[in-house]
């Protein structure tokens, strides 16, 4: 996409018009410049985030030496992993239910299923806070059981996303394939395992990645469900940002950004760039 292309521009090649490109470029700059600066300055050998003083890994060492930060990171990853597993199972079941069956009050069930997606995070967070307080949910359990409240809250807002992804994936399923398998002698279970599940797989992978990032990303709901001994990474970063901006936060953030990029690369590898573009 050379900026100055000598080929004449066809009427519908809007993307090749200069102002369109500038607009796109400026938007991408706006989206990426802060993140790139943040990453660059995590290697800056200075307390202040402004002037480049030289390259250092100092703040990474500090971040890794900061026990509560590491603990928060481990907590976050554990919660994300658990929430992903449960969300994929629940979401796949719910997606198949909506795709496959006709049942009374289906539209009501669909509506309720989409509520965790549209209800503001703050309201869900409040609801979880009150719920676990009211239930006298045990606190002070040994790790990782102490993360159960946060994990449950995360599953609640993750699995409807998985259900949506799985359902829309299944909409492209050709039911004749299922009949063909049965016609060739396969039982219900064999048909599910050999035909339906392979078709569902990209949806499951997309749903899993979505759950994992949503869980890892969540601050508000976690903020309301976490106790003093169940700090997650975003909650920890929040308190660090609130009270003191240090390059340590830059270092920790950079690690998380790189994790996101790695996850994206995994998704790319698994589904190809087109597949990813289609899932959203």
């Amino acid at each position: 996409m050379a900026l100055f292309n000598r080929q004449p521009i066809a009427p519908l090649e809007y993307t090749r018009k200069l102002w369109m490109r500038s607009w796109l470029g400026a938007t991408l700059l706006f989206l990426y410049a802060p993140l790139i600066l943040l990453m660059v300055f995590s290697f800056n050998d200075s307390k202040r985030n402004v002037v480049w003083k030289g390259f250092t890994f100092k703040y990474y060492e500090k971040a890794f030496a900061n026990e509560s930060l590491v603990e928060a990171m481990v907590n976050s990853l554990t919660i994300a992993l658990l929430a992903t597993v449960f969300s994929v199972i629940l979401g796949a079941l719910a997606g198949v239910m909506l795709w496959r069956f006709r049942f009374p009050m289906k539209s009501a069930v669909e509506g309720v299923m989409s509520l965790p997606i549209i209800v503001p995070e703050i309201c869900l967070g409040v609801a979880m806070l009150i719920f676990f307080a009211r239930m006298d949910w045990p606190t002070g359990l040994p790790w990782p059981l102490n993360l159960s409240a946060i994990t449950i809250a995360h599953i609640t807002f993750c699995f409807p996303f998985v259900a949506m992804v799985v359902r829309s994936r299944m909409a492209s399923f050709n039911r004749e394939q299922e009949e063909a398998a049965k016609d060739l002698g396969a039982s219900e279970w064999q048909t599910f395992r050999d035909i339906l599940l392979p078709h569902m797989r990209p949806g499951l992978i997309a749903g899993a990645l979505l759950s994992f990032t949503l869980s890892l990303d969540d601050f508000v709901i976690t903020f309301f469900t976490s106790g003093p001994d169940t700090i997650t990474f975003p909650v920890k970063v929040y308190s660090m940002v609130r009270f003191s901006v240090t390059p340590e936060v830059n270092a920790a953030s950079t690690i998380l950004i790189i994790l996101t990029i790695v996850l994206t690369a995994v998704a790319l590898k698994l589904q190809g760039v087109k597949g990813i573009a289609e899932t959203h």
Binding site: N174, E176, E179, A180, A181, D183, L184, D194, P198, H199
Partner: peptide
């Protein structure tokens, strides 16, 4: 009996 489907229903995977 076996059937050849209109869409062929060849398993894509």
């Amino acid at each position: 009996v076996n059937m050849v489907f209109q869409s062929y229903a060849v398993f894509p995977h």
